[in-house]
Computed example of a mutant assay.
Amino acid sequence: MSIQYDYLLNELNRTPFSVIIAKYDQILGPRILFSSCDFKDPNFVKSLLRDSLNTKNKYVQLNFTGFYGQIDKVEIEDNTARGGKQLYAIILLRHKDYPPIPVIHFKRIEQIFHKIGKKRILSDHNDSFMNFYKEVHEIYLEKQELLPLESINLQIRSGINTIHGFCQLILEENRNKKRISKENLIPYIKMMLDSCNDVIDAVEKSDNLPI
């Protein structure tokens, strides 16, 4: 799918993610049960769900123009369903400029989903889905448990890019059979050490993030 959803991109520019809860209904087919944004094209989600069914992976990422979707498939026991289980999908839509959310965070989000309770989930209880969204929103936005991960990601990439650039400079000077003067070399080395410290600091911060 290559359609540009301008209204959705505007939404994703304002928030780190939008949440959709969908169901692989064995009779009615894939359908939306809840969406945190004003979703104007239900056929998009149906296509999204069908594409994710093409793989047996529990966690699926699908890329689109300007954004991507991360999908966590959740099975709920249902004696009336074929195979004794009903399949749901927790979908997080993200702007392409944001890094993917790690699986470990999806595991926590899934735990929150299960807290709704099997009976309410199977009855497509919209108020419960809204409460689920509010809890996820509070944990990952208001309590800043997800955004630090993204700033850490940028901090690591920035440090590595500096080190990479310095290595390229050394190789270029070697190819041209030139020597970097001591006056120029010392500032570069200090810059490298600062970048290494930034990467170490970012890794230590990531170890302390709540999961």
Rank of each mutant, 00 (worst) to 15 (best):
Y5A: 06
V103F: 10
R175I: 12
N43E: 07
F132K: 06
I101P: 00
K118T: 11
D127M: 14
K85V: 15
L147H: 12
S52H: 03
S158M: 05
Y140L: 03
N79D: 10
T162V: 14
S52W: 02
D25W: 11
H164V: 06
S181H: 07
N126R: 12
K119V: 13
G84V: 11
G83N: 09
L154F: 14
R50V: 08
L154V: 14
H95L: 02
D41N: 10
K177C: 03
L62E: 00
E77A: 13
K178T: 10
F106E: 00
L48T: 08
L209T: 11
I211D: 07
V136R: 02
P100W: 02
Y59Q: 02
F113H: 04
C167E: 08
R31G: 05
Q111V: 02
D201Y: 07
P100S: 05
V199R: 01
S18N: 10
T80R: 12
P99D: 00
V203A: 05
T162H: 04
A22M: 11
N184C: 05
I21S: 00
H125K: 13
I139C: 05
I104Q: 13
I170D: 12
P100V: 07
I139P: 05
D72P: 01
D124A: 13
P148L: 14
I104R: 10
H105K: 12
N79F: 07
F17K: 04
Y88C: 08
E11Y: 06
S2K: 14
N184F: 12
K177G: 01
C167I: 12
K85H: 06
L185E: 05
K96F: 10
N57P: 04
K107E: 04
I156M: 02
G165S: 11
V203S: 03
C196M: 12
D194W: 09
D198H: 00
E77R: 10
N184M: 15
L93T: 02
K96C: 05
H95K: 09
C167L: 14
N153P: 04
P16E: 01
P99R: 01
T65F: 09
S128Y: 00
S18R: 09
L12G: 03
G83C: 09
E110W: 04
K107W: 05
I180R: 14
S151W: 14
Y59P: 01
L28R: 15
S158W: 04
D127P: 02
N153K: 13
Y68G: 08
T162K: 08
K23S: 07
R82E: 15
Q86N: 15
H164D: 15
K58H: 02
A89Q: 03
Y188E: 08
K134F: 04
D97K: 10
I91F: 04
N161L: 11
H125T: 13
H137L: 06
A89K: 01
S151Y: 11
N197V: 02
D207Q: 14
I156Q: 00
T15H: 15
N176K: 13
L171K: 10
